[in-house]
């Protein structure tokens, strides 16, 4: 989430891989077998959770049990029943419907934020690495990475609060702020990956046969760092889910009447002693979504990038 740390021998933006091959795989941590192509249990769980969130959101466009704005005073604060599988809130609104609509906002914020970070951060990282190759361009690469470090001093949530203060609180500023805060992570990953690719035999061969720098970047660098960028996207998605939930919880993210998990959780606080299930469902959804993207990222890292974790510095 932060800081001037490119110079350190360790990069905390990249979560450490847990030994998620499972106890019986016999795979040593950090040294997955070369031929291993079977997805790990963790990755399957992660992918399933992510699919579940997407399914909730997509189905909500076609069908939900109720309309999210339907207020039914007679059915307020009900426990789970056949009519309302997950119960109702203080206005008699159906919780399942709200959970499904909430998935939309969660994914929307994640997709837009990760999209912004990926489309800006990846080229920035590649360019910084390319400049670092030349004696005359080294300082440009260094300046880019320093700027990156300073941006890291603004954690996603803080940047989003600044945006909420400057513009108005809402989903739009939240998405942009979370996206900007996630740029350094992508730049870091793209830069270290590009450095590796540039030092390879085939790039030297391409250079020798007079391929232009731009062509090398597109033909050789991009495909080779794509895996690591996808891993970073999964991790950044988890962070953006957390940031959106936190912002909406503070009342600075998604505004009423649009349903969001963070605000459901915030509104549930006053009924904690009498209706704890109101907090349970949105809380569970947030945690499972984050868990899903984290596990998926870990699993993908094992596949794409067996040796790159825990040293994102170039």
């Amino acid at each position: 989430m932060s800081e001037a740390r490119s110079s350190t021998p360790f990069d905390p933006t990249l979560p450490v891989r847990v030994d998620d091959a499972g106890p019986d795989s016999g795979v040593e941590t950090g040294r997955p077998g070369r031929g291993r192509r079977r997805p790990s249990a963790a990755m399957i769980i992660g992918a399933s959770l992510v699919l579940l969130v997407f399914a909730l959101a997509l189905v909500s466009f076609i069908w939900t049990p109720y309309d999210p704005s339907t207020i039914d005073p007679a059915a307020r604060l009900q426990a789970g029943s056949l009519e309302h599988p997950l119960g109702t809130d203080r206005f008699g609104r159906d919780t399942l419907t709200w959970i499904m609509y909430g998935a939309r906002i969660t994914l929307l914020v994640g997709i837009v934020a990760v999209g912004i970070a990926l489309l800006i951060g990846t080229p920035v990282g590649i360019i910084a690495a390319l400049f670092a190759q030349h004696r005359w361009g080294m300082w440009i690469g260094a300046v880019i990475m320093r700027a990156n470090d300073i941006l890291l001093a603004f954690p996603a949530l803080l940047l989003a609060i600044i945006f909420a203060a400057a513009f108005a609180p809402g989903t739009g500023p939240a998405m942009v702020a979370v996206g900007i805060a996630a740029i350094p992570g992508f730049a870091r990953v793209a830069r270290s990956g590009t450095m590796q690719v540039l030092s390879s035999e085939y790039v030297r061969a391409a250079r020798a046969s007079n391929r232009s720098t731009a062509a090398i970047a597109v033909v050789h660098v991009l495909p080779n760092i794509a895996g690591m960028v996808i891993v970073q996207a999964s991790v950044a998605f988890a962070i953006s889910v957390l940031a959106e939930a936190g912002l909406s919880f503070l009342g600075l993210g998604t505004q009423p009447p649009v349903p969001s998990w963070g605000r459901m959780l915030q509104e549930s606080q006053q009924f904690l002693s009498t209706h704890p299930e109101l907090a349970l469902w949105p809380g569970l959804c947030i945690a499972l979504a984050v868990l899903g993207f984290n596990l998926l990222g870990d699993g993908l890292r094992d596949r794409f990038d067996p040796k790159m974790e825990a040293r994102g510095h170039g």
């Binding site: 847990v18 030994d19 939930a245 936190g246 959780l265 907090a279 809380g283 984050v290 868990l291 984290n294």
Partner: peptide, 30 residues
């Protein structure tokens, strides 16, 4: 790391990372 205690700690920490602090707070208050 090879027996069930190590694996359980790893799994629990993975789950813990996914729980936002405000959710942890709400559960603790409950």
């Amino acid at each position: 790391q090879r027996n069930w205690i190590g694996v359980t700690i790893s799994a629990l920490s993975q789950v813990g990372i996914a729980v936002p602090n405000f959710l942890a707070a709400i559960i603790l208050v409950m």
